[in-house]
């Protein structure tokens, strides 16, 4: 009812003010032009990369994604080990970061007293704001030596019977990348999850507590309500992990290798592009790298679109209720 009324009023306002006013028309069209430019920009990005990678797409087609040889000398480009490295590093990072992030989100949204919540939230957001190259710098000089001298010898000693913890403790490799990625996605997942938890109406908690639930039991109910939003936050973290470039490039060892061991070096799509783009001498090489960027572009668009839809549907659910 009210929305109909509003529309009616809007129409009248429009008739009175806009249609007779040239300034309004120009202003609206001008801002529209910029809005359209953002829309076109996304299309243009995809198109530019398609053009740039046409050479490689025509030659390799879909086999680009499943071929496991990445050999610039022979001009054979298969991205399988690179996709493997990207997927494994991101998923493992999520496995580490997710429980912690949800813990942080619960603490910030449900448990922390207001005087502590604000500074803590600020610190978590600060963590998200550190440039990724500084994470990488810290990774090279602090994290990697620590992994080399302490973590990897310990793991291979205690868990060396598993194929995941074998090989020389070199420091640079999948393990370092996973750890640094989990630190980097944690603030993203936790700050969005905190907002999602806070959007659950207070009455849900009150109802649970009134029935005699403990704080934790009421939190579980809130978590159930916020499920889709937290899933969305996790997807956003995944998107970030997949596209993260500098920090990963600096610690992952940069070799296109499929190995179960976390000690071995690996490669991700973003780090291949960062590492080899300026060295790409032949047109085919460059084209293959741009195709890699295109794959990365498409994957992150899908993940982000899905994630934002989840977070939106969550916030809309409570607004209309």
């Amino acid at each position: 009812m009210s929305s109909v009324k509003k529309k009616f009023e809007n129409n009248i306002l429009k008739k009175i003010f806009s249609s007779h006013n040239l300034g309004d028309l120009i202003f609206e069209r001008l801002t529209l032009l910029f809005a359209v430019s953002v829309f076109l920009l996304v299309l243009l990005m995809g198109y530019e990369m398609y053009l740039g990678s046409k050479l490689s797409i025509d030659k390799f087609g879909w086999s680009f994604l499943v071929n496991s040889t990445w050999d610039p000398v022979q001009e054979i480009y298969g991205a399988l080990p690179i996709i493997y490295g990207t997927v494994v590093s991101s998923l493992l990072a999520l496995i580490i970061a997710l429980p912690l992030s949800i813990g942080v989100a619960i603490y910030l949204a449900e448990v922390a007293p207001p005087w502590l919540e604000k500074p803590l939230s600020f610190l978590v957001e600060l963590l998200a704001g550190i440039p990724s190259v500084i994470y990488g710098l810290w990774g090279i000089f602090v994290l990697v030596p620590w992994i080399r001298t302490d973590v990897e010898p310990y793991l291979s000693d205690k868990l060396g019977f598993l194929p995941f913890f074998r090989g020389a403790p070199y420091g640079f490799g999948m393990l370092a990348a996973v750890l640094i990625l989990s630190i980097m996605v944690l603030p993203i997942i936790s700050s969005i999850s905190r907002d999602v938890l806070k959007s659950v109406p207070h009455s849900q908690r009150e109802a649970a507590l009134a029935l005699g639930a403990t704080k934790w039991q009421s939190t579980i109910i809130v978590l159930k309500d916020a499920k889709s939003g937290i899933l969305g936050a996790t997807m956003l973290g995944l998107g970030r992990a997949i596209g993260e470039t500098m920090a990963v490039t600096m610690v992952i060892g940069n070799r296109a290798l499929i190995s179960p061991s976390l000690f071995d070096p690996s490669y991700t799509m973003a780090s291949v592009i960062a590492n080899e783009f300026t060295e790409a001498t032949s047109e085919m090489y460059l084209s293959a790298l741009i195709q890699l960027a295109l794959v990365l572009f498409v994957i992150t668009i899908i993940i982000n679109a899905f994630a934002h839809l989840l977070v939106w549907s969550m916030s809309r659910k409570w607004k209309t209720a």
Binding site: V38, L41, V42, L44, M45, E48, M49, G52, L236, G239, R240, I242, G243, E244, T245, A270, I273, A274, F277, L289, I290, A293, L296, F297, T300, I301, I303, N304, A305, A307, H308
Partner: peptide, 13 residues
């Protein structure tokens, strides 16, 4: 969605 596109992809573009 644009905010989630990796910055390196923007560099390639």
């Amino acid at each position: 969605v644009l905010s989630g596109i990796p910055s390196i992809v923007v560099g390639v573009v």
